[in-house]
Design a protein around this nucleic acid. Structure first.
Lengths: 255, 255
DNA sequence: ATAATATGTGACGATTCGTCACTGACGAAT
DNA sequence: ATTCGTCAGTGACGAATCGTCACATATTAT
């Protein structure tokens, strides 16, 4: 065999990314439930021992994929954060960027959902668990930025007994809960429920932001029309790719 | 070997429950990540083939445990639904009953979280997947009842463009999102975040219900004091058991 | 009494996991 | 130039787990 050169951090990182991308391809091809370390090893140009140097097992690999895809999501969040428009509208846009992400990258979205599951966390390395926590904090920075903008321009005031971090968390947990519980409706309408994930996300966002007294309130502004325009302007590529998959954001049901 | 008598539905159900309870004990002892079919088989008084007659694999067993524990959760929800007090307070109480459930039955709570994970669902039987969906619908009946009571007594009006099912869903997804994302804080304060699961659940419930215009609004009523009283009255046994575990609901941080 | 059916069993082969003795490149010491 | 120690990859191997099915026995139908 050909022994390797001494490794540096960049080379290690690159190899880890190669393994992750191979695993994502396998998930797309065979389904996440059929992912095994042996199958991943068969796909990459290194040995089993080398793969086990990066990940302590399948669950750790799933968590690493989730971490990697949280970075992708963070980019979408950041784009929403940077977009024009009032703070509240940008927060709604950010919430929808999570849904767009889930529609666009179903395999990655599945890994994100797995990463919260105790049977996955329980078999993951401290390294990847800690990395995931840091990434979730970083995910919050765009949310934090939008909330700060709202506080600064006076469209939002901190509710009694709540600090900015709690506001951020409530928004994230609302989006996370709604999209996770309706994950079966993300790729296409399953027919199993009358709930429509984009409509419920929209309504739930509005209830939460109205509850915060975040202006303009729902009774004062048609957030839906503005959201459609903003999505078309910020995510034209993404919306086209989603459309190419046979899925289109459904606004008829609530505008 | 001793061949069995012809089976009836009740006997099958009883045996399935025995397997489930054995698996829960194993989860409590070894952790959910170490559960295997071979270990479960070693614990029950039947053969491997018999266990495989009930569950197609480990993931299917996890989903069946989740379904079983959703029934336990449904009982708590129903108790909250039946409690005295205004509709909004009862909904807050119901949300907290999910947290109490998570604190009281961590192994079952972990199974509920696993049940949403794609790598578990992907390896589960249609029977248990369908059963789970029906149970989630049944879980909604108590939520539905409280919302109807609110609509009937005028404390709540349907928000524009939303029906009663969507209201129910938004409450459930809020509770689900908050408790799942802070699942690391349920059994004890991890020190990894300043967020406190009971405080965030309380605040998020209030934001959502205020957003719905559900009276009495947060600015008009101290929901916290009423919640403490109601919890002490409805769940005294449960709160004592939680205290015996070294965990106590933390109200100092937000009253 | 006999044949068909129902149901449980656990040995077995397959798959997957996770490790480690072995290998060769590289750099330091002589 | 040679030798030795270190570094890092390898994939055969044994262990663990999965999932099945030929076999055994009781029950039911003929």
């Amino acid at each position: 065999m050909t022994p390797p050169k001494l490794l540096d951090e960049a080379a290690l990182k690159e190899r880890e990314l190669l393994i992750i991308n191979s695993a994502v391809l396998l998930i797309q091809t065979n389904g996440i439930e059929n992912l095994t370390m042996d199958k991943v090893v068969a796909q990459v140009p290194f040995s089993k021992g080398t793969v086990y140097k990066h990940f302590i097992g399948k669950e750790d690999l799933l968590l690493a994929i989730s971490n990697y895809s949280i970075k992708v999501l963070g980019d979408l969040f950041y784009r929403a954060y940077q977009f024009k428009g009032c703070a509240r509208s940008r927060m709604l846009l950010l919430n929808f960027s999570y849904l767009i992400y889930a529609m666009l990258y179903p395999a990655l979205f599945q890994c994100v959902m797995c990463s919260k599951s105790p049977n996955v966390v329980g078999k993951s390395s401290e390294k990847h668990i800690n990395e995931g926590e840091l990434l979730e904090v970083k995910l919050m920075t765009s949310i934090h930025g939008i909330v700060e903008d709202g506080l600064n321009d006076g469209s939002l005031s901190l509710p009694l007994n709540m600090d900015i971090q709690q506001i951020c968390f409530s928004n994230w947990s609302m989006a996370y809960g709604a999209i996770t519980l309706l994950s079966g409706e993300v790729e296409q309408c399953s027919g199993r429920t009358s709930l429509i994930v984009e409509r419920e996300l929209f309504n739930h966002s509005n209830l939460l932001h109205d509850g915060m007294g975040w202006q303009p309130l729902s009774k004062d502004r048609n957030h839906c029309a503005e959201l459609k325009t903003a999505l078309a302007e910020l995510f034209p590529e993404e919306l086209m790719q989603i459309k190419a998959k046979g899925r289109e954001l459904n606004f008829e049901s609530f505008s």
